[in-house]
Design a protein around this nucleic acid. Structure first.
Lengths: 231, 231
DNA sequence: CCATGTGAAAGCGTTCACAGCG
DNA sequence: CGCTGTGAACGCTTTCACATGG
């Protein structure tokens, strides 16, 4: 369930506000979902709510943590100590949640021996050894797209079991390894697309010059609802 | 369509390899989708394929660009010049696709006047003025969670129309403004969750000590498929 | 009386399968 | 004969509505 971590954060906030109990409605407001959704999601954890009252915040946190396996700590490798790598290594949100970046790797000799966040930078050639020695099971790829696949192959060989790929390319891996991709520019493109839609909605012509006669005859293609909804 | 940007990248790759035409099957392989999916997606753009041959790569690129409104250029503000902000400001992938980070903002006086990437850092108090002067329509929030909502309010007031939020919290905005959230740690949690699942699948007991007698009687709760699929 | 928990219904996105065209 | 374009089937996710229980 991709929403459990979000609930967890909202519960933490609520707890810090001194609340002890929370209704599905209130929790839904905080995470941007509706009450039914929240109840259905939480029902998969078991019945931890009290009718007429709501959910006990601390109990619910425990249950979500248990379900997500967040009692575990993970050792994480960071490959690529460029701008993005620096940011990831210094990002406090990881360690906070049990993800410890314990080593970084880069081909740039000038970076080797320095630190990003708490992690020492090693040359790429040491990857296999360090991964084994430090018991690393996860890796972040923050390299240019051109070398991402090579890095991925090395990581698999080193025995890593999960990879989060920030390079703007698809990497193929053995199916035993779990890969997720984060493409920052794609997020912006999506925003740009909605922006574009809104302008079109307001009656503006599409600016792009293009195939003059090729305008499709009917069917507003991609926007299913012709309502002035923005996103 | 969230996959169009991905297709675009794959097409660019194919083009650089000297290909002129591509089948839905081949394109599907490159983006990790199946052929039917690709064809259905592309059919929303109109009929730009040739039966028996495939799709003309350049034509398809043009059509996707048109659909996404990518002929446009966007001026982007970066709020928060900390680690993540630095990385975002220096990230080449944005400008490459028409998103120009033209100004950064931070409350830290020591950062004001310096640059992140191509953007000068301004004090937060100047946000309204600079947004208007530089014609900024998008913003990246890369601040601590605690101030994210305040920043969001200021951005709305300044007239920004789209926001990408990297702070680990939900921000509420007027519905005319489009917000997307990127939570880096959530991605790792998801990986950690799958890792956890795989261990449970292998027959290991859940490590967390907890409510002793509360083990639900039946129904493997969250994993719909009891197959040894990893992710 | 209020809020949970849950079947039943609705909505979306994906996949299948094949007709149709170059 | 190959590959597109698309209606129909399928499965998953979300929403609705209400019975149940503190």
């Amino acid at each position: 369930m991709r929403r459990l971590p979000v609930y967890l954060r909202a519960l933490l906030d609520a707890h810090n506000e001194g609340l002890v109990t929370i209704s599905s409605d209130e929790l839904g407001n905080r995470v941007g979902a509706n009450a039914a959704q929240v109840r259905k999601d939480l029902s998969y954890l078991g019945s931890y709510g009290t009718r007429g009252i709501g959910y006990d915040i601390e109990l619910l946190q425990q249950q979500i943590n248990r379900q997500l396996g967040l009692d575990k700590q993970f050792n994480v490798a960071l490959v690529g100590a460029g701008n993005l790598g620096q940011a990831l290594g210094n990002y406090g949100g990881f360690a906070e949640r049990g993800f410890h970046v314990v080593a970084a790797f880069d081909t740039d000799q000038r970076k080797v021996g320095h630190k990003v966040g708490a992690a020492e930078v090693f040359p790429l050639s040491e990857l296999g050894r360090v991964v084994r020695e430090k018991n690393i099971t996860m890796a972040l790829i923050a390299t240019p797209a051109s070398v991402a696949q090579d890095i991925a192959d090395r990581l698999v060989e080193a025995g890593v079991s999960s990879v989060l790929n920030f390079a703007p390319t698809i990497v193929n891996m053995s199916p035993e390894v779990c890969v997720r991709k984060v493409d920052l520019a794609v997020e912006l493109q999506i925003l740009g697309y909605y922006d574009h839609l809104r302008e079109v909605d307001r009656g503006g012509a599409v600016a792009a010059g293009g195939a003059g006669s090729a305008a499709p005859s009917e069917a507003p293609p991609m926007a299913p609802a012709p309502t002035p909804r923005s996103c």
